[in-house]
Design a protein around this nucleic acid. Structure first.
Length: 560
DNA sequence: TGCGGCTATTG
DNA sequence: CACAATAGCCGCAG
């Protein structure tokens, strides 16, 4: 059931037998859609998450959908997936003929010469710029016509998914679509944050909220002075300028190629300025990125921190979030507090990437290792090394590390798990020569062709190596993202009836806001959902997936 | 003003 | 800093 909706205009729907038009004057669009979802439970088809967001804003949360943009990103790779682009791809039209939708200028007016009448499809087969630019939304009849078009695109996508060499591609298209629904809800609902608790953490780093610009400047100067007092008297260095920090360090006898924290870590004892600088950097991070301004901008009156969620990035397909939801410093997790009468059920997948590697490569020996809760233990035993060495070696194989301790054990890894290592090696080779890849679930990992500019042999080799590491990692990280999303949308579907809801997705971790009296039930449900997700996603049941699940009041209560 | 480089944070 | 992401500030080019 394809859908186009604008609350003030109405609803247009399209099925295989025709279209339905419901003007907003007759019935509230939200009521129509809710009723159909409850009675018929169709798979709603729409162009993008925009429609999901419209529905969520109108108070409607449907069960399932087919998100054409999400499926396009799966099939074709990359991130661009506007209607005109998807239409062109699905009709084998040249990309350089896609009408522009930006502000009109002389060139785009000329390019739109194909918009002869007011129909949605031009004579050259492309979508009309006027329609994609908003014309689709002006009348109920146009909504229905737009719905019919997107339905046609979805059918073509289904056909394409059946043609690629990935049996799970259609299932992945459905879970990726559901993930877009989840993203629309995450963006609208936000993450519960206790403003007072969060401000207390911030105050620990940078002091109380400044009451004036002058006070803010003073706080800043005080932080700077803590570092500069270790510098030669009278010297002036801007700590925010890497070049000047390097000069400052050189002045006290420390020569470094760059001033990154990991490099300075070992020089803590060389001079007191190093320790002071590292502490300054931490405070500066809180002050500039995660300070009071951050709360003011993203934390609502209702105690929810909101950012924009995307179902997949442009690379391997992990979820992304803005507003610091994915990279909030661990220190601030104390501000993430469940609301009154609620708790968080927190669960994270254990060793997700090596387990996924065992699954997608079909390596029976590595799959046997996943039977253990800690799969690095049997791997270490098999290789005849200690556990830390085994772990570094496995991670190194997935990331493409070629130096250090991991590289030395790599040869043994190849002997013990030849199928998995060959799978990674093939992905690396693909990256090196610019051959695109598909993940287990069917996501296209586009490999750009070699740099057109003149580069030295050395640079060319370095770039090829980087693409090799990228390909090697993308097939694992991407497949892990696919499994994670199946898990997340399964929890979405099963937890809602219990009054619980996902409030954060973090690559291998879920935070589910839950009524306190149902905590144990939801915790069990989240674990069950992982097993259900693994059964749906995995090639077979040879690989075991494990989650560490706990019930907590605030995020920082979770064990690290 | 836009953008690359550097840096920090997370998984 | 091996893979990915978001984000802020500096320095430079235009």
């Amino acid at each position: 059931m394809a859908l186009a909706v604008v609350p003030a205009v109405g609803v247009g729907m399209a099925t295989s037998t025709g279209t339905v038009v419901v003007p907003a004057i007759d019935v509230a669009p939200a009521a129509v859609i809710r009723r159909i979802d409850e009675d018929v439970r169709p798979r709603w088809v729409w162009w993008s998450i925009d429609t999901a967001a419209t529905l969520v804003t109108a108070g409607v949360r449907v069960a399932t959908c087919w998100d054409v943009a999400a499926v396009h990103r799966l099939l074709v790779g990359g991130w661009r997936a506007d209607p005109a682009t998807v239409w062109a791809e699905m009709h084998d039209l040249p990309a350089d003929g896609i009408p522009t939708t930006g502000p009109l200028d002389l060139f785009s007016v000329a390019a739109q010469a194909g918009d002869q009448d007011d129909g949605p499809v031009r004579d050259d087969g492309h979508l009309s710029a006027e329609w994609v630019g908003g014309g689709w939304s002006t009348t109920p009849d146009r909504l229905a016509e737009w719905a019919a078009l997107v339905r046609g695109v979805a059918v073509r996508q289904q056909d394409r998914l059946g043609e690629i060499d990935r049996p799970m591609a259609t299932a992945t298209a459905r879970s990726e679509s559901a993930a877009e629904l989840l993203c629309a809800e995450l963006s609208a609902d936000g993450l519960p944050v206790d403003r007072a608790a969060a401000e207390a953490v911030i105050a620990r780093f940078v002091g109380p909220r400044p009451r004036s610009e002058a006070e803010a400047v003073e706080q800043r100067a005080r932080r700077d002075a803590e570092v500069l007092r270790h510098a030669p008297p009278g010297s002036r260095f801007d700590l925010r300028s890497p070049g000047q920090v390097k000069s400052l360090l050189r002045r006290v006898g420390i020569e470094v190629p760059d001033t990154r924290a990991w490099r300075l870590e070992s020089l803590r004892d060389a001079h007191p300025v190093v320790e002071a600088l590292l502490a300054w950097r931490k405070a500066e991070r809180v002050a500039t990125t995660y300070g009071y301004a951050w709360l003011d901008e993203h934390l609502g009156e209702d105690g929810r921190l909101r950012g924009a969620w995307s179902g997949c990035d442009g690379a391997a397909g992990r979820m992304t979030a803005s507003a610091g939801l994915h990279n909030m410093p661990a220190d601030l997790r104390g501000g993430v507090v469940a609301e009154a009468g609620h708790v968080f059920v927190r669960a994270d997948l254990g060793q997700i990437e090596p387990r996924v590697l065992a699954a997608v490569s079909g390596d029976a020996a590595l799959a046997r290792a996943t039977e253990e809760a800690d799969m690095y233990a049997p791997v270490a035993q098999h290789l005849g090394v200690d556990r830390p060495t085994a772990k570094v070696a496995v991670l190194g194989a997935m990331y493409g590390q070629t130096t250090g301790r991991g590289a030395q054990v790599l040869r043994r890894l190849e002997g013990a798990y030849p199928v998995a290592m060959a799978y990674l090696e093939d992905a690396a080779r693909a990256g090196q020569v610019g051959r695109s890849l598909r993940t287990y679930g069917g996501r296209l990992i586009r490999m750009g062709t070699a740099n057109a500019n003149e580069v030295t042999d050395r640079e060319a080799r370095s770039q090829a190596a980087a693409r090799g590491r990228y390909g090697r990692n993308a097939v694992v990280q991407g497949a892990a993202a696919e499994l994670f999303k199946v898990w997340a949308v399964t929890v979405r579907a099963r937890a809602t009836p219990a009054g619980a809801g996902v409030v954060l997705c973090l690559h291998d971790e879920l935070l589910v806001h839950t009524p306190a009296d149902r905590a144990e039930a939801v915790a069990g449900l989240v674990d069950d959902c992982l097993q259900e997700a693994a059964r749906r996603w995995a090639p077979d049941d040879a690989v075991r997936f494990v989650a560490d699940t706990s019930v907590i009041a605030r995020w920082s209560d979770a064990k690290a």
